[in-house]
């Protein structure tokens, strides 16, 4: 296989200059780029924090005359704590899925080895937990709208929905990616040589998770 560019898409082990897979180098560069994307969103949220001229507000009560009627702080910390936990656990499921693919060839004897070594189970769990997180987000968004906060209401609404919405869109893309991998796994079984395609999905997934770690603190907890 003389063409390294082409070859790498078939075998993870064809020599490249660094010995690393092209796709893994590219996904890390992509993640670096995403840092700036979320930095812009987060900065805007923080810059506009406390500058809305009308309620509802994230952490403060809004009373007349600023608002028509008294509005409670809108962020629901208990619910978001649970969804944060769900997303963290999805990262655990994701690493277990990758480990299962990396060790797909090793014989499994005990039941626990079989469970831990099932890439299908853990890919499914990751996608399920990701979907659960999205469900929480959908619940949060609709309840905000019922309480009178939309993307048009005030600066908080605009920056909050855009920031968390962008994150949600990333989770959605990740879920689709995971479902695709699951479909491939079910159809032909993922082998250790396929580890890299799970690895790049995993890196993306964990990155989306760490972005949420930052958002949870900066948006929800700090006030």
């Amino acid at each position: 296989m003389a063409n390294p560019a082409a070859a790498i898409e078939h075998h993870g082990h064809t020599p490249t200059t660094t010995g690393l897979d092209h796709r893994k180098v590219a996904i890390w560069a992509f993640i670096g780029s995403e840092c700036m994307l979320f930095a812009s969103l987060i900065s805007t949220y923080l810059i506009y924090k406390g500058r809305s001229v009308t309620g509802p507000f994230p952490h403060e009560v809004c009373s007349p005359p600023v608002c028509d009627h008294v509005m409670k702080p809108i962020l629901n910390i208990p619910v978001t704590s649970v969804s944060t936990f769900v997303l963290l656990m999805s990262s655990l499921a994701m690493v277990l899925a990758l480990a299962a693919v990396e060790n797909a060839d090793k014989p499994k004897h005990s039941l626990s080895e079989k469970i831990l070594g099932s890439s299908k189970l853990w890919l499914f769990m990751t996608a399920l937990l990701g979907t659960t997180f999205l469900g929480f987000q959908a619940f949060e968004f609709t309840s905000f709208v019922h309480e009178g906060l939309t993307i048009r209401t005030n600066l908080f609404g605009s920056s909050f929905f855009t920031l968390t919405g962008f994150h949600g869109a990333h989770v959605t893309a990740g879920v689709l990616w995971l479902v695709t991998l699951l479909a491939i796994d079910i159809r032909r079984g993922l082998k250790p040589k396929d580890a890299v395609i799970v690895d790049i999905a995993a890196l993306y997934w964990h990155f989306v998770d760490v972005v949420w770690i930052a958002i949870f603190t900066l948006v929800y907890l700090i006030h």
């Binding site: 010995g19 690393l20 893994k24 180098v25 890390w28 780029s33 840092c35 930095a39 900065s43």
Partner: peptide
């Protein structure tokens, strides 16, 4: 590989410095 560390931490530092500068 340390290359991945560089690809991530470099942009991350620029991103964080940008956030702080904007604030």
């Amino acid at each position: 590989h340390k290359l991945f560390r560089a690809l991530f931490t470099g942009p991350l530092i620029i991103a964080m410095v940008t956030i702080v500068a904007l604030l």
